[in-house]
Design a binder for these strands. Structure first.
Length: 571
RNA sequence: GGGGGAGUAGCUCAAUGGUAGAGCAACGGCCUUUUAAGCCGCAGGUUCAGGGUUCGAAUCCCUGCUCCCCUACCA
């Protein structure tokens, strides 16, 4: 008992502190929030818990809208009219002898956020929003709603969550409306909402406070839901093709599988410096060695590089590996997958034509994707072949590209070729036409199998393609390299010539080479930027718009609370 | 990294060196078929922060912070 009383004393003391803190804080609470707090207390005064409770039997707002029954509503209106008329004509007759009111209107129970309200005195109109409907009308009349519900309607603020129940009817202007018989609070919105018509406009606030953006701009929620549907459809598509989903390490002692600067972290228990993965590739291939024939991973990758409208430091790629496939297998899979996702995105967004809008473009995913080789595209754009080094150098110089590095040594031919390709040839790809660019130069693709028969060509090729849609690189696929000696050689080449800084995150993955020595089946491998696919199919301009919570620099006030950076930062 | 633009009431925006305003939201009042409800009334400001020029600064100058656009870098 003594213990308990001490505990309760302590609790009381703590409560006092909480009250004091709350009072202190109240001094700084904005007047608009204060008014909402007062409304919340008034709701409590009606006997409600302003934060609601479990509600069963809810319909979505769209379901409620569709549940409207024209015949029942008409019958109810007609019989009500007849009843009233008869009562006027025979005021002395008991109700039982008058023509009865027939009410077979469906009764719905719905929940949503108040986005509009109009108080007509004894009749209050609310418009609710949920993920299925931007606006569904509720009427709360003094005559037909219970008293507490009617009083509640008067105390609501825009942004509050409520639960309404009542029959469906149509107003004079033909709008399906729930004519509430009860109204309950579900949660209080203490934060003043954005402008009711325009929603939250400031892009910075939209990304920082997605929860506000989402309810005030319903398109945001629709895009994020579309993302979910596309991810789910992608999994189903791959599973239909006998691929299995796997999960491989995010924390890696050496980040491999791509050339990118990783993020670093530290594991206390093993005193181990680790990096976050930049790609799952090397682990997925190990699974092929072990005997999994068809694997995929939806991989969150982390790259310590710049941000722009198609780059976020963490992003989602789909990586797929198929034993006994090659890059053509991956091409067929990719085209089928993206076409199916486009069909789903079109039907989700009510687009009936083949052409999906993306900004100014209309992109057709139905007709076969364009295919062109790297050399063909190069020659088409530049007018000479990739192997014609004299003209390559000339063209680079004519365009003012660097042909020598800082120390005066000539830049390797292949980098000049690729510079021209990226600057001149890639922009010639029709952005409205999904296009596979096939057969890249082998020296640009260290983890790719060289294309047989081109080893002695001026520019040896690799079994690799890249898919371009809407001016964005969506992802590459390869016939994977499975010769351990060639792989080891490529690792060594990659390490040679990197500076000290890069060498801190490039390394020779001995264990991976060992895995190849055990024997990896020939395989096709694929990587697709899922964020970019959602951008394309959801017609969103930036990667931030398809991420629920894109990377944002902390505000100055928040940054001050964070630990100082451990080491030197860049630059 | 370079160039350009922006930051004003809770939100969306005006005010180009001379009294900081509007619409929406809020608050008080009236209203039982409104729907961007309406009518009457009332209130709301560290003009991003700090410094400077000026009799006088939201406005001009400097520094810093944040965002947007273009550009550059980036497998």
């Amino acid at each position: 008992m003594r213990v308990r009383s001490r505990v309760s004393e302590q609790t009381e003391q703590q409560n006092d502190e909480v009250v004091l803190d709350a009072q202190e804080a109240a001094a700084e609470i904005h007047r608009l929030e204060q008014q909402r707090r007062e409304n919340r207390e008034a709701v409590r005064g009606l006997g409600f818990n302003p934060y609601g409770q479990r509600a069963d039997g809810l319909m979505t707002l769209a379901q409620a809208h569709d549940a409207y029954d024209e015949a029942a509503d008409t019958e109810n209106k007609d019989t009500t009219q007849a009843h009233k008329q008869a009562k006027r004509d025979n005021p002395d007759l008991p109700d039982a002898d008058l023509p009865p009111v027939v009410d077979a209107r469906p009764i719905v129970r719905v929940a949503g956020r108040v986005v509009l309200s109009r108080d007509n005195g004894k009749l209050v109109w609310l418009n609710l929003r949920d993920h299925t409907s931007d606006s569904f009308q509720i009427a709360i009349s003094k005559r037909d709603c219970d008293e507490n519900g009617f009083q509640l309607a008067k105390l609501l603020d825009n942004g509050d969550l409520v639960i309404a129940q009542g029959p469906l009817t149509k107003t004079k202007t033909g709008e399906v409306t729930c004519w509430a018989s009860t109204l309950e609070p579900a949660s209080k919105c203490l934060v003043p909402p954005p402008e009711k018509r325009l929603g939250l406009q400031d892009p910075d606030m939209r990304y920082r406070q997605r929860y506000v953006d989402m309810w005030s701009n319903p398109d945001t929620t629709r895009t994020l839901l579309l993302r979910s549907k596309l991810m789910s459809a992608m999994r189903r598509h791959l599973e239909r093709h006998d691929f299995v989903e796997v999960e491989t390490p995010v924390l890696q002692t050496q980040a491999g599988g791509a050339a990118a600067r990783p993020f670093f972290t530290h594991m206390n228990a093993l005193h181990l410096d680790l990096s976050l993965r930049i790609a799952p590739e090397l682990y997925l291939k190990r699974l092929l060695v072990g005997g999994m024939p068809r694997v995929f991973e939806v991989s969150r990758n982390f790259r310590n590089e710049g941000l722009d409208k198609s780059h976020n430091p963490e992003f989602t790629s789909l990586e797929v590996y198929q034993a006994y496939g090659n890059y053509e297998t991956m091409l067929e899979l990719t085209e089928g997958l993206i076409r199916e996702l486009a069909q789903i995105a079109a039907s989700e967004q009510g687009i009936s034509s083949n052409a999906m809008p993306f900004g100014e473009l209309l992109i057709d995913y139905e007709q076969p994707f364009e295919r062109i080789t790297y050399s063909e595209l190069f020659e088409k754009a530049l007018g000479f072949s990739v192997g014609d080094m004299e003209k390559v150098r000339g063209a680079c110089e004519a365009r003012g590209f660097k042909t020598k590095s800082e120390d005066g040594t000539a830049i390797a031919d292949i980098f000049l070729i690729n510079e021209l390709f990226e600057e001149v040839a890639e922009p010639m790809i029709d952005p409205a036409r999904p296009t596979f660019v096939l057969d890249y130069p082998a020296s640009l693709s260290p983890l790719t199998r060289p294309k047989p028969g081109t080893e002695q060509d001026p520019v040896p090729l690799a079994d690799r393609w890249d898919l371009f849609i809407g001016g964005m690189e969506i992802g590459p696929a390869y016939t994977e390299l499975n010769d351990p000696d060639v792989q080891a050689q490529k690792f060594r080449e990659q390490l040679a010539g990197v500076d000290d800084e890069e060498s801190t995150f490039r390394s020779f993955d001995e264990d991976f080479v060992n895995a190849l020595k055990v024997g990896m089946p020939p395989a096709g491998g694929l990587g697709l930027g899922m964020d970019r696919i959602v951008m394309l199919l959801g017609n969103q301009r930036t990667i931030r718009d398809v991420l629920p919570f894109p990377m944002m620099k902390p505000l100055a006030s928040a940054a001050g609370q964070q630990d100082a950076p451990q080491g030197e930062t860049d630059e």
